[in-house]
Write a protein that binds this DNA or RNA. Structure first.
Lengths: 293, 293
DNA sequence: CTATCTGTTCAGTAATACTTCACAATATGG
DNA sequence: CCATATTGTGAAGTATTACTGAACAGATAG
Protein backbone atom coordinates (compact mmCIF):
# COMPACT_ATOMS: atom_id res chain seq x y z
CA UNK A 1 0.00 0.00 0.00
CA UNK A 2 1.18 3.50 -0.82
CA UNK A 3 1.55 6.24 1.74
CA UNK A 4 -1.55 8.13 2.75
CA UNK A 5 -0.17 11.38 1.41
CA UNK A 6 2.52 10.87 -1.23
CA UNK A 7 5.71 12.89 -1.34
CA UNK A 8 5.46 14.95 -4.52
CA UNK A 9 7.43 17.92 -5.73
CA UNK A 10 5.89 21.05 -7.13
CA UNK A 11 7.88 20.39 -10.28
CA UNK A 12 5.80 17.29 -10.89
CA UNK A 13 2.59 19.24 -10.43
CA UNK A 14 3.93 21.81 -12.84
CA UNK A 15 4.52 19.08 -15.38
CA UNK A 16 0.93 17.97 -15.20
CA UNK A 17 -0.43 21.50 -15.44
CA UNK A 18 1.87 22.35 -18.34
CA UNK A 19 0.63 19.31 -20.26
CA UNK A 20 -2.98 20.43 -19.89
CA UNK A 21 -2.03 23.84 -21.21
CA UNK A 22 -0.19 22.75 -24.33
CA UNK A 23 -1.20 20.64 -27.27
CA UNK A 24 1.80 18.31 -27.11
CA UNK A 25 4.14 17.11 -24.41
CA UNK A 26 7.14 18.36 -26.33
CA UNK A 27 5.65 21.84 -26.32
CA UNK A 28 4.94 21.61 -22.59
CA UNK A 29 8.48 20.43 -21.93
CA UNK A 30 9.87 23.34 -23.92
CA UNK A 31 7.71 25.79 -21.97
CA UNK A 32 9.24 24.42 -18.75
CA UNK A 33 12.77 24.56 -20.14
CA UNK A 34 13.33 20.82 -19.70
CA UNK A 35 13.81 17.97 -22.12
CA UNK A 36 10.85 15.82 -23.19
CA UNK A 37 12.64 13.00 -21.46
CA UNK A 38 12.47 14.72 -18.09
CA UNK A 39 8.78 15.41 -18.59
CA UNK A 40 8.03 11.82 -19.49
CA UNK A 41 9.93 10.44 -16.54
CA UNK A 42 8.45 13.03 -14.21
CA UNK A 43 4.89 12.12 -15.15
CA UNK A 44 5.71 8.43 -14.81
CA UNK A 45 7.03 9.11 -11.33
CA UNK A 46 3.93 11.12 -10.46
CA UNK A 47 1.70 8.27 -11.60
CA UNK A 48 3.74 5.82 -9.59
CA UNK A 49 3.40 7.90 -6.42
CA UNK A 50 -0.29 8.53 -6.84
CA UNK A 51 -0.68 4.84 -7.55
CA UNK A 52 -2.93 5.61 -10.49
CA UNK A 53 -2.25 6.00 -14.24
CA UNK A 54 -3.09 9.49 -15.44
CA UNK A 55 -2.64 8.89 -19.17
CA UNK A 56 -3.66 5.96 -21.32
CA UNK A 57 -1.50 5.11 -24.30
CA UNK A 58 -3.35 5.11 -27.60
CA UNK A 59 -0.86 3.98 -30.21
CA UNK A 60 1.94 6.45 -29.72
CA UNK A 61 -0.20 9.22 -28.41
CA UNK A 62 -0.90 9.79 -24.71
CA UNK A 63 -4.51 10.46 -23.88
CA UNK A 64 -5.62 11.65 -20.43
CA UNK A 65 -8.33 9.85 -18.47
CA UNK A 66 -11.54 11.61 -17.51
CA UNK A 67 -10.37 12.08 -13.93
CA UNK A 68 -6.98 13.45 -14.95
CA UNK A 69 -8.49 16.89 -15.53
CA UNK A 70 -9.65 16.93 -11.90
CA UNK A 71 -6.18 16.07 -10.67
CA UNK A 72 -4.67 18.74 -12.90
CA UNK A 73 -7.16 21.27 -11.60
CA UNK A 74 -6.25 20.46 -8.02
CA UNK A 75 -2.58 20.74 -8.93
CA UNK A 76 -3.25 24.14 -10.47
CA UNK A 77 -4.97 25.26 -7.30
CA UNK A 78 -2.14 24.08 -5.09
CA UNK A 79 0.41 25.83 -7.26
CA UNK A 80 -1.63 29.00 -7.18
CA UNK A 81 -1.78 28.76 -3.38
CA UNK A 82 1.95 28.25 -3.23
CA UNK A 83 2.59 31.14 -5.58
CA UNK A 84 0.34 33.38 -3.52
CA UNK A 85 1.90 32.57 -0.17
CA UNK A 86 5.40 32.76 -1.65
CA UNK A 87 4.84 36.24 -3.02
CA UNK A 88 3.25 37.33 0.21
CA UNK A 89 5.94 36.03 2.52
CA UNK A 90 8.68 37.45 0.32
CA UNK A 91 7.00 40.84 0.35
CA UNK A 92 6.45 40.76 4.11
CA UNK A 93 9.36 38.73 5.45
CA UNK A 94 11.95 39.96 3.02
CA UNK A 95 11.02 43.53 3.83
CA UNK A 96 10.81 44.06 0.12
CA UNK A 97 8.48 46.42 -1.57
CA UNK A 98 7.60 44.24 -4.51
CA UNK A 99 5.20 44.57 -7.35
CA UNK A 100 1.45 44.96 -7.17
CA UNK A 101 -0.36 43.46 -10.16
CA UNK A 102 -3.61 45.34 -10.76
CA UNK A 103 -6.27 44.49 -13.35
CA UNK A 104 -9.01 46.88 -14.47
CA UNK A 105 -11.84 46.98 -16.95
CA UNK A 106 -11.44 49.78 -19.45
CA UNK A 107 -14.00 52.16 -17.96
CA UNK A 108 -12.33 51.92 -14.56
CA UNK A 109 -8.84 52.47 -15.96
CA UNK A 110 -9.64 55.42 -18.23
CA UNK A 111 -12.43 57.05 -16.29
CA UNK A 112 -13.30 56.15 -12.73
CA UNK A 113 -9.91 55.28 -11.29
CA UNK A 114 -7.39 57.46 -13.15
CA UNK A 115 -7.05 60.01 -10.39
CA UNK A 116 -6.96 57.40 -7.62
CA UNK A 117 -4.30 55.41 -9.48
CA UNK A 118 -2.12 58.45 -9.98
CA UNK A 119 -2.46 59.48 -6.34
CA UNK A 120 -1.69 55.97 -5.09
CA UNK A 121 1.40 55.66 -7.27
CA UNK A 122 2.65 58.99 -6.01
CA UNK A 123 2.05 57.94 -2.40
CA UNK A 124 3.94 54.65 -2.88
CA UNK A 125 6.87 55.51 -5.13
CA UNK A 126 8.79 52.31 -4.36
CA UNK A 127 5.88 50.07 -5.21
CA UNK A 128 5.80 48.87 -8.79
CA UNK A 129 2.12 48.99 -9.78
CA UNK A 130 1.54 46.92 -12.93
CA UNK A 131 -1.76 47.61 -14.66
CA UNK A 132 -3.59 45.18 -16.96
CA UNK A 133 -6.71 46.31 -18.80
CA UNK A 134 -9.08 43.55 -19.92
CA UNK A 135 -12.75 42.51 -19.77
CA UNK A 136 -14.15 41.20 -16.47
CA UNK A 137 -14.14 37.53 -17.47
CA UNK A 138 -10.48 37.56 -18.36
CA UNK A 139 -9.55 39.47 -15.21
CA UNK A 140 -11.33 36.93 -13.01
CA UNK A 141 -9.54 34.10 -14.80
CA UNK A 142 -6.19 35.72 -14.18
CA UNK A 143 -7.10 36.37 -10.58
CA UNK A 144 -7.94 32.69 -10.11
CA UNK A 145 -4.57 31.68 -11.57
CA UNK A 146 -2.98 34.25 -9.28
CA UNK A 147 -1.60 36.27 -12.18
CA UNK A 148 -3.13 39.36 -10.58
CA UNK A 149 -3.22 40.58 -6.98
CA UNK A 150 -6.42 42.59 -7.34
CA UNK A 151 -8.91 43.43 -10.09
CA UNK A 152 -11.37 46.28 -10.49
CA UNK A 153 -14.24 44.82 -12.51
CA UNK A 154 -17.91 43.86 -12.50
CA UNK A 155 -18.76 42.14 -9.23
CA UNK A 156 -18.63 38.32 -9.57
CA UNK A 157 -21.51 38.07 -7.05
CA UNK A 158 -20.35 34.98 -5.26
CA UNK A 159 -19.36 32.95 -8.31
CA UNK A 160 -15.85 31.59 -7.84
CA UNK A 161 -13.36 31.83 -4.97
CA UNK A 162 -13.31 35.63 -4.71
CA UNK A 163 -13.71 38.35 -2.14
CA UNK A 164 -15.05 41.65 -3.41
CA UNK A 165 -15.35 45.19 -2.12
CA UNK A 166 -18.05 47.23 -3.92
CA UNK A 167 -16.71 50.52 -5.28
CA UNK A 168 -19.48 52.10 -7.32
CA UNK A 169 -22.66 51.59 -9.31
CA UNK A 170 -22.41 52.00 -13.07
CA UNK A 171 -25.55 52.77 -15.06
CA UNK A 172 -26.03 51.52 -18.65
CA UNK A 173 -28.50 53.26 -20.96
CA UNK A 174 -29.90 52.83 -24.48
CA UNK A 175 -28.66 55.23 -27.18
CA UNK A 176 -30.30 55.81 -30.55
CA UNK A 177 -28.57 57.28 -33.62
CA UNK A 178 -28.86 61.10 -33.91
CA UNK A 179 -32.01 62.25 -35.70
CA UNK A 180 -34.24 59.40 -34.61
CA UNK A 181 -37.21 61.23 -33.14
CA UNK A 182 -39.55 60.67 -31.63
CA UNK A 183 -38.42 57.50 -29.87
CA UNK A 184 -41.02 54.74 -30.35
CA UNK A 185 -41.78 51.81 -28.06
CA UNK A 186 -38.96 49.27 -27.43
CA UNK A 187 -40.40 46.94 -30.12
CA UNK A 188 -39.25 49.52 -32.74
CA UNK A 189 -35.65 49.77 -31.41
CA UNK A 190 -32.56 48.47 -33.14
CA UNK A 191 -30.64 47.19 -35.00
CA UNK A 192 -27.88 46.98 -32.41
CA UNK A 193 -24.15 47.57 -32.14
CA UNK A 194 -23.05 45.91 -28.90
CA UNK A 195 -20.25 44.38 -26.85
CA UNK A 196 -19.22 40.86 -27.97
CA UNK A 197 -21.44 37.93 -26.99
CA UNK A 198 -18.76 36.40 -24.82
CA UNK A 199 -18.75 39.41 -22.51
CA UNK A 200 -20.57 39.35 -19.16
CA UNK A 201 -22.04 42.78 -19.65
CA UNK A 202 -23.40 41.73 -23.03
CA UNK A 203 -25.20 38.81 -21.44
CA UNK A 204 -26.87 41.19 -19.01
CA UNK A 205 -27.74 43.59 -21.84
CA UNK A 206 -29.41 40.86 -23.90
CA UNK A 207 -31.43 39.77 -20.92
CA UNK A 208 -32.69 43.25 -20.16
CA UNK A 209 -33.50 44.10 -23.78
CA UNK A 210 -35.48 40.90 -24.17
CA UNK A 211 -37.32 41.68 -20.95
CA UNK A 212 -38.61 45.00 -22.28
CA UNK A 213 -39.51 43.50 -25.64
CA UNK A 214 -36.85 44.99 -27.90
CA UNK A 215 -35.96 42.88 -30.99
CA UNK A 216 -32.38 41.60 -30.82
CA UNK A 217 -30.94 42.16 -34.29
CA UNK A 218 -27.20 42.67 -33.79
CA UNK A 219 -25.33 44.35 -36.62
CA UNK A 220 -21.88 44.55 -35.13
CA UNK A 221 -19.87 43.63 -32.01
CA UNK A 222 -16.86 45.34 -30.49
CA UNK A 223 -15.08 45.49 -27.16
CA UNK A 224 -14.20 49.13 -27.73
CA UNK A 225 -16.88 51.58 -26.59
CA UNK A 226 -15.35 54.38 -28.70
CA UNK A 227 -15.94 52.30 -31.81
CA UNK A 228 -19.56 51.69 -30.84
CA UNK A 229 -20.10 55.39 -30.15
CA UNK A 230 -18.70 56.36 -33.54
CA UNK A 231 -20.81 53.81 -35.38
CA UNK A 232 -23.96 55.00 -33.64
CA UNK A 233 -23.11 58.60 -34.55
CA UNK A 234 -22.81 57.49 -38.18
CA UNK A 235 -26.37 56.14 -37.93
CA UNK A 236 -25.56 52.46 -38.28
CA UNK A 237 -27.66 51.42 -35.32
CA UNK A 238 -28.44 51.62 -31.61
CA UNK A 239 -26.31 50.67 -28.67
CA UNK A 240 -26.23 50.13 -24.90
CA UNK A 241 -23.31 51.64 -23.03
CA UNK A 242 -22.30 52.84 -19.58
CA UNK A 243 -23.58 56.40 -19.36
CA UNK A 244 -20.15 57.67 -18.41
CA UNK A 245 -18.65 56.26 -21.58
CA UNK A 246 -21.38 57.38 -23.97
CA UNK A 247 -21.85 60.87 -22.58
CA UNK A 248 -18.22 61.81 -22.19
CA UNK A 249 -15.74 63.40 -24.54
CA UNK A 250 -16.34 65.55 -27.63
CA UNK A 251 -18.85 63.26 -29.39
CA UNK A 252 -21.61 62.51 -26.94
CA UNK A 253 -24.68 60.41 -27.57
CA UNK A 254 -28.02 61.20 -26.06
CA UNK A 255 -30.21 58.63 -24.40
CA UNK A 256 -33.23 57.01 -25.99
CA UNK A 257 -34.84 56.94 -22.58
CA UNK A 258 -33.99 59.06 -19.59
CA UNK A 259 -33.78 56.17 -17.15
CA UNK A 260 -30.95 53.63 -17.42
CA UNK A 261 -31.55 50.12 -18.77
CA UNK A 262 -29.87 48.63 -15.70
CA UNK A 263 -26.95 49.16 -13.34
CA UNK A 264 -24.02 46.94 -12.49
CA UNK A 265 -21.72 47.01 -9.50
CA UNK A 266 -18.01 47.62 -10.05
CA UNK A 267 -15.92 46.11 -7.26
CA UNK A 268 -12.35 45.54 -6.17
CA UNK A 269 -11.97 41.74 -6.33
CA UNK A 270 -9.26 39.52 -4.84
CA UNK A 271 -8.61 35.82 -4.84
CA UNK A 272 -9.91 34.22 -1.65
CA UNK A 273 -7.19 32.87 0.62
CA UNK A 274 -5.26 34.01 3.65
CA UNK A 275 -2.15 35.39 2.02
CA UNK A 276 -2.57 38.58 0.06
CA UNK A 277 -0.02 41.05 -1.16
CA UNK A 278 0.34 43.54 1.68
CA UNK A 279 -0.24 46.47 -0.67
CA UNK A 280 -3.71 45.24 -1.70
CA UNK A 281 -5.46 46.58 1.39
CA UNK A 282 -4.13 50.16 1.12
CA UNK A 283 -4.78 50.13 -2.61
CA UNK A 284 -8.44 49.15 -2.21
CA UNK A 285 -8.78 51.65 0.62
CA UNK A 286 -7.43 54.36 -1.68
CA UNK A 287 -9.97 53.47 -4.35
CA UNK A 288 -12.84 53.49 -1.88
CA UNK A 289 -11.75 56.86 -0.49
CA UNK A 290 -11.36 58.40 -3.95
CA UNK A 291 -14.72 57.15 -5.21
CA UNK A 292 -16.78 57.97 -2.15
CA UNK A 293 -15.30 61.42 -1.50
CA UNK B 1 16.63 36.46 -7.94
CA UNK B 2 14.80 33.29 -6.96
CA UNK B 3 12.35 31.53 -9.19
CA UNK B 4 8.83 32.89 -9.34
CA UNK B 5 7.43 29.64 -7.90
CA UNK B 6 10.00 27.62 -5.98
CA UNK B 7 10.36 23.87 -6.34
CA UNK B 8 9.32 22.44 -3.00
CA UNK B 9 8.43 18.95 -1.94
CA UNK B 10 5.41 18.02 0.11
CA UNK B 11 7.82 16.55 2.65
CA UNK B 12 9.11 20.05 3.36
CA UNK B 13 5.60 21.36 3.83
CA UNK B 14 4.93 18.46 6.16
CA UNK B 15 7.97 19.44 8.20
CA UNK B 16 6.64 22.95 8.68
CA UNK B 17 3.16 21.76 9.62
CA UNK B 18 4.53 19.15 12.01
CA UNK B 19 6.55 21.81 13.80
CA UNK B 20 3.47 23.95 14.36
CA UNK B 21 1.68 20.93 15.80
CA UNK B 22 4.33 19.87 18.32
CA UNK B 23 6.01 21.66 21.15
CA UNK B 24 9.57 20.83 20.10
CA UNK B 25 11.30 20.05 16.82
CA UNK B 26 12.54 16.74 18.16
CA UNK B 27 8.97 15.72 18.86
CA UNK B 28 7.89 16.80 15.39
CA UNK B 29 10.77 14.88 13.84
CA UNK B 30 9.80 11.78 15.77
CA UNK B 31 6.19 12.10 14.62
CA UNK B 32 7.44 12.14 11.02
CA UNK B 33 9.75 9.18 11.62
CA UNK B 34 12.88 11.13 10.66
CA UNK B 35 15.90 12.31 12.60
CA UNK B 36 16.01 15.82 14.06
CA UNK B 37 18.86 16.48 11.69
CA UNK B 38 16.72 15.80 8.65
CA UNK B 39 14.05 18.15 9.99
CA UNK B 40 16.56 20.89 10.63
CA UNK B 41 18.13 20.60 7.21
CA UNK B 42 14.73 20.33 5.55
CA UNK B 43 13.51 23.55 7.14
CA UNK B 44 16.75 25.28 6.22
CA UNK B 45 16.27 24.19 2.63
CA UNK B 46 12.67 25.41 2.69
CA UNK B 47 13.79 28.80 3.97
CA UNK B 48 16.46 28.95 1.28
CA UNK B 49 13.95 28.24 -1.49
CA UNK B 50 11.36 30.66 -0.18
CA UNK B 51 14.13 33.21 0.16
CA UNK B 52 12.87 34.15 3.61
CA UNK B 53 13.79 33.01 7.14
CA UNK B 54 10.85 31.35 8.88
CA UNK B 55 12.39 31.00 12.33
CA UNK B 56 14.53 33.39 14.32
CA UNK B 57 17.15 31.96 16.64
CA UNK B 58 16.78 32.99 20.27
CA UNK B 59 19.66 31.46 22.13
CA UNK B 60 19.28 27.79 21.36
CA UNK B 61 15.56 27.88 20.82
CA UNK B 62 13.97 28.51 17.43
CA UNK B 63 11.11 30.99 17.50
CA UNK B 64 8.78 31.45 14.50
CA UNK B 65 8.14 34.87 12.98
CA UNK B 66 4.65 36.35 12.94
CA UNK B 67 4.22 35.52 9.26
CA UNK B 68 5.37 31.93 9.67
CA UNK B 69 1.94 30.90 10.92
CA UNK B 70 0.44 32.14 7.65
CA UNK B 71 2.89 30.09 5.62
CA UNK B 72 2.20 27.04 7.76
CA UNK B 73 -1.51 27.52 7.32
CA UNK B 74 -1.13 27.70 3.54
CA UNK B 75 1.02 24.57 3.66
CA UNK B 76 -1.66 22.83 5.67
CA UNK B 77 -4.24 23.77 3.10
CA UNK B 78 -2.14 22.54 0.22
CA UNK B 79 -1.51 19.25 1.96
CA UNK B 80 -5.22 18.85 2.67
CA UNK B 81 -5.92 19.52 -1.02
CA UNK B 82 -3.35 16.96 -2.03
CA UNK B 83 -4.72 14.43 0.40
CA UNK B 84 -8.21 15.00 -0.88
CA UNK B 85 -7.39 14.67 -4.56
CA UNK B 86 -5.16 11.68 -3.88
CA UNK B 87 -7.89 9.78 -2.11
CA UNK B 88 -10.35 10.70 -4.79
CA UNK B 89 -8.23 9.70 -7.74
CA UNK B 90 -7.27 6.45 -6.08
CA UNK B 91 -10.91 5.63 -5.45
CA UNK B 92 -11.94 6.54 -8.99
CA UNK B 93 -8.91 5.76 -11.13
CA UNK B 94 -7.79 2.68 -9.29
CA UNK B 95 -11.26 1.22 -9.79
CA UNK B 96 -11.24 0.61 -6.08
CA UNK B 97 -14.21 0.80 -3.85
CA UNK B 98 -12.49 2.49 -0.98
CA UNK B 99 -13.68 3.77 2.36
CA UNK B 100 -16.20 6.50 3.02
CA UNK B 101 -15.54 8.38 6.24
CA UNK B 102 -18.82 9.66 7.66
CA UNK B 103 -19.24 11.85 10.72
CA UNK B 104 -22.52 12.36 12.58
CA UNK B 105 -23.79 14.11 15.66
CA UNK B 106 -25.33 11.71 18.15
CA UNK B 107 -28.97 12.48 17.43
CA UNK B 108 -28.43 11.83 13.72
CA UNK B 109 -26.57 8.59 14.31
CA UNK B 110 -28.96 7.06 16.84
CA UNK B 111 -32.24 8.53 15.70
CA UNK B 112 -32.67 10.29 12.38
CA UNK B 113 -30.27 8.41 10.16
CA UNK B 114 -30.19 4.85 11.51
CA UNK B 115 -32.53 3.47 8.87
CA UNK B 116 -30.92 5.40 6.02
CA UNK B 117 -27.46 4.23 7.12
CA UNK B 118 -28.51 0.61 7.24
CA UNK B 119 -30.17 0.83 3.83
CA UNK B 120 -27.15 2.54 2.28
CA UNK B 121 -24.73 -0.01 3.66
CA UNK B 122 -26.87 -2.81 2.31
CA UNK B 123 -27.04 -1.14 -1.11
CA UNK B 124 -23.22 -0.69 -1.24
CA UNK B 125 -21.81 -3.81 0.34
CA UNK B 126 -18.27 -3.29 -1.00
CA UNK B 127 -18.03 0.22 0.37
CA UNK B 128 -16.48 0.48 3.80
CA UNK B 129 -18.55 3.12 5.60
CA UNK B 130 -16.68 4.36 8.66
CA UNK B 131 -18.83 6.26 11.16
CA UNK B 132 -17.56 8.80 13.66
CA UNK B 133 -19.94 10.27 16.23
CA UNK B 134 -18.93 13.63 17.72
CA UNK B 135 -20.27 17.13 18.35
CA UNK B 136 -20.65 19.51 15.41
CA UNK B 137 -17.55 21.58 16.18
CA UNK B 138 -15.28 18.60 16.21
CA UNK B 139 -16.83 17.17 13.04
CA UNK B 140 -16.26 20.43 11.18
CA UNK B 141 -12.65 20.50 12.35
CA UNK B 142 -12.08 17.01 11.06
CA UNK B 143 -13.78 17.85 7.81
CA UNK B 144 -11.46 20.81 7.35
CA UNK B 145 -8.41 18.63 7.94
CA UNK B 146 -9.92 16.15 5.49
CA UNK B 147 -10.19 13.43 8.09
CA UNK B 148 -13.81 12.97 7.05
CA UNK B 149 -15.50 12.82 3.66
CA UNK B 150 -18.91 14.02 4.84
CA UNK B 151 -20.51 15.04 8.13
CA UNK B 152 -24.13 15.17 9.25
CA UNK B 153 -24.29 17.99 11.77
CA UNK B 154 -25.68 21.42 12.55
CA UNK B 155 -25.40 23.61 9.47
CA UNK B 156 -22.24 25.80 9.60
CA UNK B 157 -24.19 28.57 7.78
CA UNK B 158 -21.41 29.81 5.58
CA UNK B 159 -18.67 29.82 8.21
CA UNK B 160 -15.63 27.98 6.88
CA UNK B 161 -14.87 26.33 3.54
CA UNK B 162 -17.88 24.02 3.49
CA UNK B 163 -20.73 23.07 1.22
CA UNK B 164 -23.90 21.92 2.95
CA UNK B 165 -27.13 20.17 1.95
CA UNK B 166 -29.99 20.76 4.42
CA UNK B 167 -31.55 17.52 5.63
CA UNK B 168 -34.07 18.41 8.32
CA UNK B 169 -35.16 20.88 10.98
CA UNK B 170 -34.63 19.89 14.57
CA UNK B 171 -36.72 21.53 17.30
CA UNK B 172 -35.36 22.12 20.83
CA UNK B 173 -37.75 22.63 23.74
CA UNK B 174 -37.58 23.42 27.47
CA UNK B 175 -38.24 20.58 29.94
CA UNK B 176 -39.07 20.98 33.62
CA UNK B 177 -38.66 18.28 36.29
CA UNK B 178 -41.80 16.14 36.85
CA UNK B 179 -44.23 17.59 39.36
CA UNK B 180 -43.48 21.24 38.70
CA UNK B 181 -46.90 22.68 38.03
CA UNK B 182 -48.12 25.06 37.13
CA UNK B 183 -45.24 26.39 34.96
CA UNK B 184 -44.49 29.99 35.87
CA UNK B 185 -43.03 32.77 33.69
CA UNK B 186 -39.48 32.23 32.28
CA UNK B 187 -38.00 34.31 35.09
CA UNK B 188 -38.89 31.46 37.49
CA UNK B 189 -37.23 28.70 35.41
CA UNK B 190 -34.10 26.80 36.28
CA UNK B 191 -31.62 25.83 37.58
CA UNK B 192 -30.31 24.20 34.40
CA UNK B 193 -28.67 20.96 33.28
CA UNK B 194 -27.31 21.65 29.78
CA UNK B 195 -24.84 20.71 27.06
CA UNK B 196 -21.24 21.88 27.72
CA UNK B 197 -20.38 25.52 27.15
CA UNK B 198 -18.02 24.70 24.30
CA UNK B 199 -20.82 23.24 22.21
CA UNK B 200 -22.44 25.18 19.39
CA UNK B 201 -25.92 24.18 20.41
CA UNK B 202 -25.26 25.36 23.96
CA UNK B 203 -24.29 28.78 22.66
CA UNK B 204 -27.60 29.01 20.83
CA UNK B 205 -29.51 27.79 23.89
CA UNK B 206 -27.91 30.44 26.15
CA UNK B 207 -28.76 33.15 23.65
CA UNK B 208 -32.41 32.13 23.43
CA UNK B 209 -32.87 31.66 27.17
CA UNK B 210 -31.44 35.09 27.83
CA UNK B 211 -33.72 36.55 25.17
CA UNK B 212 -36.85 35.32 26.97
CA UNK B 213 -35.57 36.41 30.36
CA UNK B 214 -34.78 33.08 32.01
CA UNK B 215 -32.02 33.21 34.70
CA UNK B 216 -28.97 31.23 33.64
CA UNK B 217 -27.93 29.22 36.69
CA UNK B 218 -26.26 26.08 35.35
CA UNK B 219 -25.99 23.14 37.77
CA UNK B 220 -24.40 20.55 35.49
CA UNK B 221 -23.09 20.05 31.96
CA UNK B 222 -22.96 16.91 29.86
CA UNK B 223 -22.63 15.95 26.23
CA UNK B 224 -24.90 12.98 26.76
CA UNK B 225 -28.62 13.73 26.39
CA UNK B 226 -29.54 10.51 28.21
CA UNK B 227 -27.68 11.75 31.27
CA UNK B 228 -29.50 15.09 31.16
CA UNK B 229 -32.87 13.37 30.81
CA UNK B 230 -32.19 11.16 33.83
CA UNK B 231 -31.06 14.07 35.97
CA UNK B 232 -34.17 16.07 35.10
CA UNK B 233 -36.36 13.07 35.97
CA UNK B 234 -34.64 12.96 39.34
CA UNK B 235 -35.71 16.57 39.86
CA UNK B 236 -32.23 18.12 39.84
CA UNK B 237 -33.17 20.87 37.39
CA UNK B 238 -34.46 21.93 34.01
CA UNK B 239 -32.99 21.30 30.57
CA UNK B 240 -33.23 22.15 26.88
CA UNK B 241 -33.06 19.25 24.45
CA UNK B 242 -34.06 18.27 20.94
CA UNK B 243 -37.65 17.13 21.21
CA UNK B 244 -36.84 13.84 19.55
CA UNK B 245 -34.27 13.05 22.21
CA UNK B 246 -36.32 14.12 25.23
CA UNK B 247 -39.62 12.59 24.16
CA UNK B 248 -38.31 9.23 22.98
CA UNK B 249 -37.74 5.92 24.75
CA UNK B 250 -39.22 4.64 28.01
CA UNK B 251 -38.54 7.71 30.19
CA UNK B 252 -39.99 10.71 28.43
CA UNK B 253 -39.98 14.27 29.63
CA UNK B 254 -42.87 16.62 29.01
CA UNK B 255 -42.37 20.15 27.77
CA UNK B 256 -42.57 23.21 29.94
CA UNK B 257 -44.06 25.07 27.01
CA UNK B 258 -45.79 23.57 23.99
CA UNK B 259 -43.83 25.54 21.44
CA UNK B 260 -40.10 24.84 20.89
CA UNK B 261 -37.44 27.25 22.17
CA UNK B 262 -35.85 27.35 18.70
CA UNK B 263 -35.00 25.12 15.76
CA UNK B 264 -31.68 24.30 14.12
CA UNK B 265 -30.95 22.90 10.68
CA UNK B 266 -29.15 19.58 10.40
CA UNK B 267 -27.24 19.30 7.11
CA UNK B 268 -24.91 17.03 5.22
CA UNK B 269 -21.65 19.01 5.08
CA UNK B 270 -18.57 18.49 2.88
CA UNK B 271 -15.25 20.23 2.51
CA UNK B 272 -15.33 22.69 -0.38
CA UNK B 273 -13.10 21.72 -3.27
CA UNK B 274 -13.41 19.95 -6.60
CA UNK B 275 -12.38 16.44 -5.67
CA UNK B 276 -14.78 14.59 -3.44
CA UNK B 277 -15.04 10.91 -2.70
CA UNK B 278 -17.31 9.52 -5.41
CA UNK B 279 -19.57 7.86 -2.83
CA UNK B 280 -20.43 11.15 -1.12
CA UNK B 281 -23.07 12.16 -3.65
CA UNK B 282 -25.09 8.90 -3.51
CA UNK B 283 -24.77 8.87 0.27
CA UNK B 284 -26.19 12.36 0.65
CA UNK B 285 -28.88 11.54 -1.88
CA UNK B 286 -29.84 8.49 0.18
CA UNK B 287 -30.14 10.62 3.34
CA UNK B 288 -32.26 13.22 1.57
CA UNK B 289 -34.54 10.52 0.18
CA UNK B 290 -34.92 8.76 3.52
CA UNK B 291 -35.66 11.96 5.45
CA UNK B 292 -38.07 13.54 3.00
CA UNK B 293 -40.07 10.38 2.18
C1' DC C 1 11.26 6.32 -49.04
C1' DT C 2 13.14 10.17 -46.55
C1' DA C 3 12.31 13.65 -43.23
C1' DT C 4 10.39 15.07 -39.17
C1' DC C 5 7.55 14.97 -35.47
C1' DT C 6 5.92 12.30 -31.44
C1' DG C 7 6.92 10.15 -26.79
C1' DT C 8 9.91 6.46 -24.52
C1' DT C 9 14.01 4.18 -22.80
C1' DC C 10 18.69 3.77 -21.30
C1' DA C 11 22.90 5.19 -19.80
C1' DG C 12 25.69 8.58 -17.10
C1' DT C 13 25.97 12.55 -14.08
C1' DA C 14 24.61 16.08 -10.94
C1' DA C 15 21.73 17.29 -7.24
C1' DT C 16 19.19 16.15 -3.17
C1' DA C 17 17.62 13.98 1.06
C1' DC C 18 18.52 11.05 4.52
C1' DT C 19 21.19 8.77 8.45
C1' DT C 20 24.99 8.54 11.52
C1' DC C 21 28.08 10.73 14.32
C1' DA C 22 30.10 14.62 16.71
C1' DC C 23 29.15 18.96 19.00
C1' DA C 24 27.26 23.39 21.26
C1' DA C 25 23.77 25.33 24.15
C1' DT C 26 20.26 24.73 27.50
C1' DA C 27 18.09 22.78 31.24
C1' DT C 28 17.67 19.31 35.54
C1' DG C 29 19.27 17.22 39.68
C1' DG C 30 22.43 15.75 43.02
C1' DC D 1 29.58 22.85 41.27
C1' DC D 2 29.64 18.92 38.25
C1' DA D 3 27.09 14.96 35.91
C1' DT D 4 23.31 14.00 32.73
C1' DA D 5 19.79 14.26 29.63
C1' DT D 6 17.73 17.13 25.89
C1' DT D 7 17.44 20.35 22.04
C1' DG D 8 18.97 21.97 17.76
C1' DT D 9 23.05 22.28 14.42
C1' DG D 10 26.87 20.85 11.38
C1' DA D 11 29.84 17.47 8.58
C1' DA D 12 30.67 13.18 6.18
C1' DG D 13 29.00 9.36 3.79
C1' DT D 14 25.45 6.96 1.27
C1' DA D 15 21.32 6.14 -1.25
C1' DT D 16 17.90 8.07 -3.81
C1' DT D 17 16.26 11.18 -7.20
C1' DA D 18 16.02 14.24 -11.22
C1' DC D 19 18.03 15.74 -15.07
C1' DT D 20 20.56 15.66 -19.75
C1' DG D 21 21.94 13.48 -23.99
C1' DA D 22 21.67 9.93 -27.22
C1' DA D 23 19.49 6.11 -29.31
C1' DC D 24 14.98 4.23 -30.44
C1' DA D 25 10.08 3.41 -32.25
C1' DG D 26 5.46 4.81 -33.94
C1' DA D 27 3.07 8.31 -36.81
C1' DT D 28 2.52 11.65 -40.45
C1' DA D 29 3.73 14.40 -44.44
C1' DG D 30 5.97 15.46 -48.71
Amino acid sequence: MDDAVPNLSTAQLNYLVAITRHRTWAEAAASLQVTPSALSQGIAELERRLGVPLFATDGRRRVPHEYTATVAHAAERMLADLDQVTRWVRAVGGGQIGRLRVGMIDIAAVHYCTAALRTFRRAHPKLDVGLTVAPTGELLGRLERNELDVAVCVDPEGSGPFDSTPLLSDALAVYAPPGVAPIGPPSTWGPWLLFPSASRTRTAIDQRLRAIGAPLVVEMESHQPEVLVEMVRLGLGWTVLPTTQAEHGPHRLSRASAEPLFTRTVSAVTRRGGAQHPAVAPFVAALVAALSG
